[in-house]
Design a protein around this nucleic acid. Sequence first.
RNA 1: UGGGCUAUGGUGUAAUGGUAGCACAAGAGGUUUUGGUUCUCUUAGUCUUGGUUCGAACCCAGGUAGUCCAACCA
Length: 613
Amino acid sequence: MEELNNVQSINTEEKKTLNFIEQKVEKDMAEGLNGGRVQTRFPPEPNGYLHIGHAKAIAIDFGIAEKFGGVCNLRMDDTNPQKEDTEYVKAIERDIKWLGFQWGKVCYASDYFQDLWDFAEWCILQGRAYVDEQTSEEIAAQKGTPTEPGTNSPYRDRPVEESLRLFREMNSGNVEPGRMILRAKIDMASPNMHFRDPIMYRVLNMEHWRTGNKWNAYPMYDFTHGQSDYLEGVTHSICTLEFVPHRELYDLFVSWMREWAADCGEKAESGSKLSTLNSQLSTYQGPRQFEFNKLNLNYTLMSKRNLLVLTKEGVVNGWDDPRMPTICGIRRRGYSPQAILNFIDKIGYTTFDALNDIKLLEAACREDLNTRAIRVSAVVDPVKLIIDNYPDGQVEEMQAVNNPELRDADGNTIMEGNTHTIHFSKELYIEREDFMEEGGKKFLRLGPGKEVRLKNAYIIACSNEQDENGNYKCIEKDSNGNITCIHATYDADTKSGMPGADRKIKGKTLHWVSCQHSIPCEVRNYACLWTCENPRDAIKQYEKENGVRGIDAMRPFLNPESLIINKNAFIEKFAATMPPLSYLQFQRIGYFNVDTTSTPEHLVFNKTVGLKG
RNA sequence: UGGGCUAUGGUGUAAUGGUAGCACAAGAGGUUUUGGUUCUCUUAGUCUUGGUUCGAACCCAGGUAGUCCAACCA
């Protein structure tokens, strides 16, 4: 009985973690829909780089397939040859792999152009589609408004044969773009605007990067997506909330396609697509669309169109600029795939249009990097510290732990293979902010009369002796009063690892590097690109109020301090051996990543995120 | 002002007619050779008005607020 209870509680526990889409999938499987099969797809348009919003879609598309033993295909939604390019395909594939997902196969909407064409001809023959020869302005005017019904096109009831002839002509290359389109005959009075005789095909007379010159007329999204899902065998077609109004049309076209399969499948050559679809009619009910809320992050602009402006105008240095919300930008910034996935898991999938706090992403990042990052010492704003009583020219080698979070079963830090050598000498650099002449009681770092520990080294102290002018003897200053050098003495009995090192002191432990044994490096500090919480809305409003567009509407909200380059930092030698994209923690400062442009001659580090507090 | 969708602490999310829980953020304290980590604890919530019900965050109706839809884009 107890066992039974345990099993039950585990089951309910698991159920609790399912989001509303996963619950629907689970229910469909339990009911044996589509033969209990699950298939999803991730369908980017290859016209730009993937961003963290896509990561949310990727996580659920691939995640559901993984969770329910199905497959997820990567499908390039390439129905618009004027915007798409092969250059993006590779980047998309690379980013998905980096996130840790694996697709069943890579498909292209353009793979289905012939099927779509045949289906469209069938629709014409059924009297469900017609060629309209009006201008786009006329068509728009007839569409009505959300509050007023539209009116029928004069071409709506033209003979089927005429539509069929003109449709074929649309693909001949002899028809000017805009001259005619193929429309579905549905309902010009529908409250759903997408039902007012939607456009199925338009003439572009343009070469497609995959199909070349074979096609001159190309299908629209609404006449492609559900059909591609159906032709591929997708069961659950997951997309974002703005496609909710499309769902009815999606379902309609899928149902037409099933009719098409039933109608023409018998006569079709056996083994052909149509014949296969016909034979599957009873076991494959067809795809259904499910929608979730897309990712909105505060202080972040997500839309591809706007990101393109930022790169073109040189506001950022390319798509992989560490300030960009692109997957490649975030990767270069130093986020781990797991950090992104954990964040996505935390914000969840709902139908509420939420604005997520970027702090949650940063928290997820710290949480993951804490277990992953190699601890090193870097001094980003150096001031010289001389240990007066340390022998000139002496150098000591000490051991520093790479990652204290690497623990054995008892919770103790594993030391074996988890340390690296550091060098201690008479002249060191410490952070300027770690010394205060008048720090007060709460300032637990260095100052006259104060004692601190140098990480992995010795306890040191500054004397509070003053000269005849009342100046502290431990501080050297330039003519402007800036501190140029600090003097301290070390307690030789307190070397890290020795018994004397256990001495408790009031001061904190400071990081440091040896002047002679550290390497100058460049550290890039990042902040949000935007000064307002919701740049998308702010830009939109500014565009409206001032009649400007693009970059001019963005400028007022750009953070001038989103990138601050510091070329005065020093880092311990060990860090110079780290390859690009290594996860590091500069102790007491934050998480940093080796930039993709970093070389041993010119070390560059990107600040991923600061330590908490 | 037509239709669709949505509303739970500061933020995000759970509770699927039966004890409003979790994470982040914020605050207090302990531990600590990172003012990190970790461990305690605290603060704070069902948009509104009705209805159905023994019982409503959940179902229904109205209101309010937000959001999406009138591209030969996806």
